[in-house]
Design a protein around this nucleic acid. Structure first.
Lengths: 203, 203
DNA sequence: GACTACAGCGACCGATCGATCGGAAGTTAA
DNA sequence: TTAACTTCCGATCGATCGGTCGCTGTAGTC
């Protein structure tokens, strides 16, 4: 026995790890991946620092695990529900709508706003594996947008002279603005503004 | 005497303070206002921690001073050169062009990108005077944009049904995207993309 | 020339940081 | 039953955090 509860089995150790990562994502969305501290995290979860760190080996590994988890949440919440829609403008619109909802919806997972936006700004002036992972995630996402934009242009759903990378650039900026409006100002009109901008952008 | 150089006079103490704040802005644009540490800052400037902190009293006061300085840089670099242009669309375009240049230009002042963008994301999930100051600065800036947008609409330079706050919302998002593209990806096409989006937005 | 004001230093504070270590407790496989 | 393995804890490490203290030396005031 440990304290009050039965000791974790090997299988439950994985659940412990999941709990750590989940809490890390929530904390990092507020404090950033660097502001995330082992001690605080361990205290929150009722673990010892060493017991917690044993699952990852280093803080950097924990940061990468948190990023991976955030990516999984984003994919499950934004991409997968829309993945089966018809490629092109239809799927792009579905994705964008899920994207808006994701920023409003995932409040428990990201109480400090979208983790990607937070850490992208936090690490954009640094070097190392964490920064590289962040840049890679953004690249992958932008590519997904570009793919559907390209299909939409070829299908005539968007004007012939549309530059997919231009629209993707504007889309990402738009969502950064939405994230800020929600987090910094709690602006309730921001989602509607984003939809309006979206309509004009994908017309 | 102190070390090699003559002791600072009272007048030079102010210059010392300015040096501290200037370096703080540069460091904070990379590390964030929380990642800014007294020890690192003092070592960079060849001061002792206590000597440095004596100018401000607390880290929070130093953070606020850095914010104030960043605001002065932004105003002098973006607003003032365009302030005398004709209010409305003309001045707005001038401001936006200065704004783009500011992100490319102020590399020495902000090696980690625009300090406002960095700290807005860093503090958007917190409370306290620093967060309040950041929110206030963004509000003031957005208001400036809205003022010229409103004038432009009334003057018929923009469509009658244009919502100034909608455009301001999109403008801010656009520049957050520009900052990210420059800092995270070093994308040389980002300024041109921003100008193209701007033309479409202010048409 | 005595006195005050103040910048800045060096030493030090308790707290916390990420990380390491050895061992206790429990699971699994033999 | 036992040996190997794994999780997790408690203690501890050196480094660093923001911040306080008493002091020194210079500039300005009278």
């Amino acid at each position: 026995m440990w304290g009050m509860s039965p000791r974790n089995s090997f299988a439950e150790a994985r659940r412990t790890r999941d709990r750590i990562v989940e809490r890390s994502v929530a904390l990092a969305s507020v404090e950033g991946l660097e502001g995330l501290t082992i001690g605080r995290l361990a205290a929150d979860l009722g673990l010892s620092k060493s017991g917690l760190l044993g699952h990852f080996g280093s803080k950097e590994a924990l940061q990468l695990a948190a990023l991976e988890r955030a990516s999984a949440i984003f994919t499950a919440s934004v991409w997968e529900p829309a993945a089966d829609a018809r490629p092109g403008l239809t799927r792009l619109r579905a994705v964008c709508e899920r994207w808006i909802g994701y920023l409003e919806r995932e409040r428990t997972a990201f109480p400090g706003g979208c983790l990607f936006t937070t850490v992208a700004v936090e690490f954009d002036g640094r070097e190392g594996p964490v920064r590289d992972a962040i840049a890679r995630l953004f690249s992958v996402w932008r590519r997904r947008l570009v793919v559907d934009l390209r299909i939409a242009v070829r299908a005539g759903e968007l004007p012939r002279d549309t530059d997919p990378r231009q629209i993707a650039f504007e889309l990402i900026g738009l969502y950064m603005g939405l994230n800020q409006a929600l987090q910094l100002f709690g602006d309730p009109h921001a989602p509607a503004r984003t939809r309006r901008a979206l309509d004009r952008l994908l017309r």
